[in-house]
């Protein structure tokens, strides 16, 4: 009875899904398929080799310091870094005094309260403070940027497909719109053509130009160099515990593999061991056991 009912209900579902399918096929056959403009002109981020790629990779502290310099001198005028504190800069190899000096000289003061009057005021940043936002509110940020909101950069390399390579490619991806780009996809007022950006036109003006910062370590500040450095720095802001994670990962894996080998030997010992037998010769991969197993299988009529 349940089976008959089941068949009826099953036929019902198949019929309704088939009805949708028929309409879908009909529409697919009759309608024209046009590739979207975004799809046609979009470019994938280029391949960039970072020092922290792969399971053994580590951050290059000199590169992170250069990237921080680019953030500080270029990006910080519009983009916040609100999940990172000045004290975290120790991870980049800065000493205690250097971190204090960076916080003390930061261009945006930290909101505070006047200790005498209790009125809102500002003070200089301390190492314990998080990076202050360049704009007091979202409204102020939009007002200053043609209604576009510059995103916080703390997590940007984890919040975009392609990660740091996407960020670096975006920063170097600006170009003149190609001649065959349809008119309604051309950058409007306050927009710039950048095929790395998903909808091709981005509100951020090209932020980097040759020699914009002067690196303390003498590295030549080309645009691709600065883009790579700042994207490496933003990979660190998004995943500051990456090196701890990988170190702990190798230790954990070595331990687990060792423990699992022991567990396997214990398992074999329980099932096939015995005072007189050696574990290795009586495991499931022992040719004698495999032959027995195959014979039993074929006798029982089990294929393969």
């Amino acid at each position: 009875m349940i089976r008959l009912l089941g068949i009826l209900i099953g036929l019902g579902f198949v019929a309704v899904a088939g009805w949708s399918l028929a309409w879908g096929v009909g529409a697919y056959v009759t309608e024209e398929h046009e590739e979207s403009v975004e799809h046609r002109f979009h470019k994938e981020p280029r391949d960039i080799a970072y020092s922290f790629d792969g399971p053994l990779g580590k951050y290059d502290h000199r590169q992170l310091q250069r990237g921080f310099q680019v953030y500080k001198e270029v990006c910080a005028s519009c983009h916040g870094l609100s999940y990172v504190a000045f004290r975290n800069l120790h991870d980049l190899g800065y000493g205690e005094e250097e971190v204090k000096a960076i916080a003390d000289r930061w261009q945006v003061p930290v909101p505070s309260v006047d200790p005498k009057t209790g009125e809102a005021s500002t003070r200089k940043a301390l190492p314990a403070d998080y990076f202050p936002n360049p704009y007091p509110s979202e409204v102020a940020a939009r007002a200053a940027n043609g209604n576009a909101l510059p995103p916080d950069l703390s997590l940007i390399t984890k919040a975009r497909h392609g990660g740091p390579a996407y960020v670096a490619s975006l920063l170097t991806g600006y170009s003149n719109p190609p001649a065959e780009l349809p008119a309604d996809s051309r950058p409007g007022q306050g927009l710039y053509y950048n095929p790395i950006f998903p909808n091709l036109n981005i509100a951020m003006p090209p932020p980097l130009r040759e020699g914009q910062v002067s690196y303390a370590d003498g590295t030549n500040p080309t645009v691709p160099q600065m883009a790579e450095d700042v994207s490496a720095f933003l990979a660190w802001t998004a995943e500051p515990k990456l090196e701890n994670r990988r170190a702990a990962g190798w230790a954990t894996l070595f331990f687990l593999i060792f423990a699992t080998i022991l567990a396997y030997l214990a398992y074999q010992n329980v099932w096939h061991g015995g005072a007189s037998r050696r574990v290795r010769q009586t495991g499931p991969l022992d040719p004698e056991n495999m032959a027995k197993n195959d014979e039993a299988k074929s006798d029982a009529g089990i294929a393969g």
């Binding site: 068949i7 198949v14 899904a17």
Partner: peptide, 16 residues
């Protein structure tokens, strides 16, 4: 369309 065919099979498998 692919998911519609697969959905039809899913219900057909268990119910028919």
């Amino acid at each position: 369309m692919i998911s519609q065919v697969a959905t039809m099979y899913y219900f057909a498998h268990f119910l028919i």
